[in-house]
Amino acid sequence: MRLAFSTNAYLSFPVDEALRRVAQAGYAGVELLADVPHAWPAGLLDVQKQAIRDSLDATGLAISNINAFMMNAVADPRQPYWRPSWTEPDPHYRAIRREHTKRSLQLAADLGAPHITTEPGGPLDDFPTRRAALECFYAELMPCVELAEELGVGLLIEPEPDLLIERFDEYLEFVDRIDSPRVGLNFDIGHAYCVGEDPQDWVAKMAPHTVHYHLEDIAATRVHQHLIPGHGAIDFAATLREIAATAYDGFLTVELYPYGDQPDAAAAEAFAFLTPLVEEARLGRNG
């Protein structure tokens, strides 16, 4: 297990500077934001992709994931992070999400990234029934699944509070109808905690589906507000022990986008808190 940090905390910096700062904080990997100002796929030239490759080489960072969840570039006034969604009532508007996902998959292939993450459908009230919303999500997602298979890139669904798929059982029910080895789970431990699913209790059950982890803390109120690990109520020691017990050997990406005013301090504090816990979990498994 290795620690990575998401560039969505560095929206005030160009991508090369964001990568430099993530590496300086000690992380081995970086989650690249497929959005402005870092790597919005619709406007990314080949020379810009090469510049990202050069920055990765210069910093020694590996790409842990490409975050195609956020869509600040669209500047939707309803919600700047995950609108437009997969379940927009207007088919032309939800096509923006579908095509963005396709471009992000191609970006991952171009940069050698293993997978991208996407939202788990849209807000619960966009369709008259849950079944209709799930059918819409499935229909929009499947062309992206086909492209993911063609490119050899993972397409990871990330359950999110207040969106169509919030809980792990809902995720399992949805993906049961998708027959693709390229579709997997982005296990966000903070999101799980928000919906009453303490992450340490779900790691083993979801391990066959989990391809990547997001880490952030959440207050004891379970309100969805990302906090620096150690500032909330999540039992990180227990969760990391459970992850290590599954023999997971990928990245654990810290996602702290609310700390855009002080990203360096947040990244450094998270790294200092998590590093000994990761090492302890690793030693416990090997011991």
Rank of each mutant, 00 (worst) to 15 (best):
I228T: 03
L185S: 02
A219P: 02
H226P: 12
D176R: 15
E166T: 03
P161Y: 03
E158N: 13
R182W: 13
Y193Q: 09
D217Y: 09
L164P: 12
A219Y: 00
E216C: 10
Y213H: 05
P181T: 02
G184V: 04
E170I: 04
C194F: 06
L155P: 00
D179V: 14
L151K: 10
M206V: 04
P229Y: 09
L155H: 08
V183E: 09
V203Q: 05
R177E: 15
K205D: 13
R241T: 14
F168K: 06
D217G: 01
F236D: 10
A233Q: 07
H224M: 13
S180A: 11
D162C: 07
A204T: 15
I234G: 04
N186Y: 02
L147K: 08
E170R: 01
E216W: 00
E242N: 12
V211H: 13
V203A: 05
L141Q: 00
E173Y: 12
I178V: 14
N186C: 15
L240E: 02
L156R: 01
A244I: 01
E158K: 10
I178A: 15
D235K: 02
G184Q: 06
G154P: 05
L156K: 03
R167P: 00
A245S: 13
S180F: 09
F236A: 07
T210L: 07
A245Q: 10
P161S: 05
E166K: 08
Q200S: 14
A204F: 06
A237E: 06
Q200E: 15
I178K: 08
T246D: 10
V223P: 04
P199D: 05
A192T: 08
E166A: 15
L240N: 02
D188L: 10
V183Q: 03
E170P: 04
L185E: 02
V153H: 12
G230D: 11
L147H: 04
L156D: 12
R167Y: 01
T239E: 06
L156N: 09
Q225F: 04
W202L: 09
W202T: 03
G154N: 06
L141D: 03
S180I: 07
D169V: 10
L215F: 10
R241Q: 08
V175T: 11
G232H: 08
V211Q: 13
E173F: 09
I228M: 13
G196S: 10
I218G: 06
I189F: 01
M206W: 04
D201M: 11
H214L: 12
W202I: 02
V153E: 00
H191R: 13
A219M: 02
P159M: 09
